[in-house]
Design a binder for these strands. Structure first.
Lengths: 352, 352
DNA sequence: GTGAAAGCGCTAACAA
DNA sequence: TTGTTAGCGCTTTCAC
């Protein structure tokens, strides 16, 4: 403060008063001009903009939000930013938010409740106007702090009691049905499923959708062919190995996520099996890398852009149009099958 | 505002006055307590903390930074958050910053000058206390806005005139020398280099280090064996194909980054070449995925944690200890060789 | 259509 | 050691 005061006026970063002085108007007029108030006359408005330009003036967002009560910051909490699924999601969320005049506060929980607590605290301290909690986990309890502070939340696949919360429902069903149909059309009848950890809502939903898809094409669900993995590459390897030990083996494997599928690809390669000649593999997510595996992975795409868009819209609604937000508290994001080279007709011996 | 005023006092989010009232002290004492001022007596301090707890009070950061002139926000601009190199960098930077009481503002420039301009504008508007510009690009001109607003900058591999800027020097040399020595020890003498785009400072530095490493082991630098690629997987494929057309082919390829190396892995596989039996490949970066390629990639690790730490320290120094910052404006980050399975002895025919 | 002035929640200078 | 008070830069009544 003191230091600031001793600086020569000329090299101080310009404030609204400086602009007002230069434009020979009141600070109220400058404020109105910046905020696009329609009452300002063209004559003054022009002078103000000129002054702003000349001084290279940027409004002080802290002061602005302090008085307006709106921070124009949205938080996004992901499970782990180094998981390739999330950066694209963050990127989209950032783009949409910035285009709409919001800033974003990113943080990863790393599936650690203590870290999540810190994340939530940071969000509250910075007075975010809403938080997208895209951890796909089960840490709902920590979120009470958010609801306590009246901060809107949007969650994936979980409904919170709080009236300021919204939910994004993921329609895995469409993509999974498409995947099963695709395999059936190729001639597969022996289809295994490497599930995600049952602690995740999303993993359970996906597994149920697999079961119903199998039923819809009248295919039997072989108990040993559904294995709970952990959504990691190593989990995929382990799942595949377990399948290999079975007397009767599937000709196709659908995986709960891409990392699992990549693990299967790798394990199959190690065993000397050719994908897709000997085995078809389908993932879920369509992470960037899916395109670059060997062979490129056929997978069920969960569009991060769509997910980000839904999350933003949910929060924007809560922040800007609370009445509408009360009515629409659920948002649907769809999935679709992306055909690449990891699926093909089953081997002749199995085709009989 | 109006709406806020009509709310019952009881459900208003508590402010410093509420805490003061409950603790029966002045707001100054509350402020002092929160900021750990040593002058507050234990008796009052205890009462204040109790009130804070009871009211679930969180200080308003906007108000705080408005008056203190310190936002405690650090910006980090990366080239592209979906590039697997960056999330880990951001993660580390976030951890360090949060541990030191700073918030971070992440944004990606996507190598687009227009987007970079927006990024910089966002940084200025939110009054960040420093920006880590880790784009590894050549967009220095846009940064003038930052220096104009007296905001400290830290850049990788580029020195800015501005006294508030610092530079992180990357010691690729150590890692590259180690890589070449490793190859030489295995028996390689024909080593190619797939360079990065010459528009990047880092790519040029890396290439020069390759040349000097080759000289230091008295190996000839074959002109056709240095090819400028673009740091993408496809670039690696193209570079490899170009090498294959040559009458005399290298037994080992060092790449300017991991994505290029992964491209080479893929192209070699397509051609039926076995890595490492027929060809050794080394990358640079050690992105997470390098561990999961087939075969796992031997690579030169550029520690994102070290980089993040250096970037944070540079900015913290500028923000908190300007005198020291004047003295230390350069930070060194080292590299090291990570041995995996993509390197081996050269094929017998070439070994002669 | 424009300006004066109050005050957002907090820190820091100054008084006591 | 504690309290009083003047702003930080801005938005937003309320007069004119």
């Amino acid at each position: 403060m003191a230091r600031k005061a001793t600086r020569k006026a000329v090299d101080k970063t310009p404030d609204i008063r400086a602009v007002a002085a230069l434009a020979k108007v009141s600070i109220a007029t400058v404020s109105r001009t910046i905020n696009g108030s329609p009452v300002v006359s063209d004559r003054l408005s022009k002078r103000v903009w000129q002054a702003i330009e000349q001084l290279n003036y940027f409004p002080n967002t802290q002061a602005r939000s302090l008085v307006s009560g709106r921070s124009r910051i949205l938080g996004i909490i992901v499970e782990n930013i180094t998981n390739p699924f999330f950066p694209e999601l963050i990127q989209s969320f950032e783009e949409i938010a910035v285009a709409n005049g919001y800033e974003i506060l990113v943080s990863s929980s790393n599936s650690d409740p203590a870290v999540l607590t810190t994340c939530v605290r940071r969000m509250i301290e910075r007075k975010v106007e809403g938080v997208a909690v895209l951890t796909f986990g089960e840490e709902e309890t920590v979120l009470e702090h958010l609801t306590y502070h009246d901060i809107p939340i949007v969650l994936a696949e979980f409904r919170l009691e709080d009236p300021k919360s919204s939910t994004i429902l993921l329609d895995y069903s469409t993509g999974i049905h498409a995947a099963i149909h695709h395999l059936v059309e190729l001639g597969h009848r022996k289809i295994a499923y490497l599930a995600g950890p049952h602690a995740l809502h999303s993993a359970i939903t996906r597994e149920n959708d697999f079961r119903s898809a199998m039923q819809s094409v009248n295919l039997p669900i072989h108990k040993d062919w559904i294995i709970e993995c952990n959504h990691t590459l190593k989990g995929g390897v382990a799942g595949f190995e377990q399948l290999q030990k079975l007397p009767e083996r599937p000709t196709a494997i659908l995986c709960s996520n891409d990392m699992t599928a990549i693990g299967v690809l790798r394990a199959a390669y190690m065993r000397g099996l050719n994908v897709p000649k000997d085995l078809s593999v389908i993932g879920l997510d369509d992470i960037d890398f899916a395109e670059f595996t060997l062979p490129p992975l056929t997978t069920i795409r969960l569009s991060r852009t769509d997910l980000a868009r839904a999350a933003f819209e949910a929060l924007r609604l809560q922040a800007e149009e609370p009445d509408k937000a009360k009515i629409q508290r659920e948002f649907l994001v769809s999935t679709s099958l992306v055909l690449r080279d990891s699926t093909g007709v089953p081997p002749a011996t199995a085709r009989s």
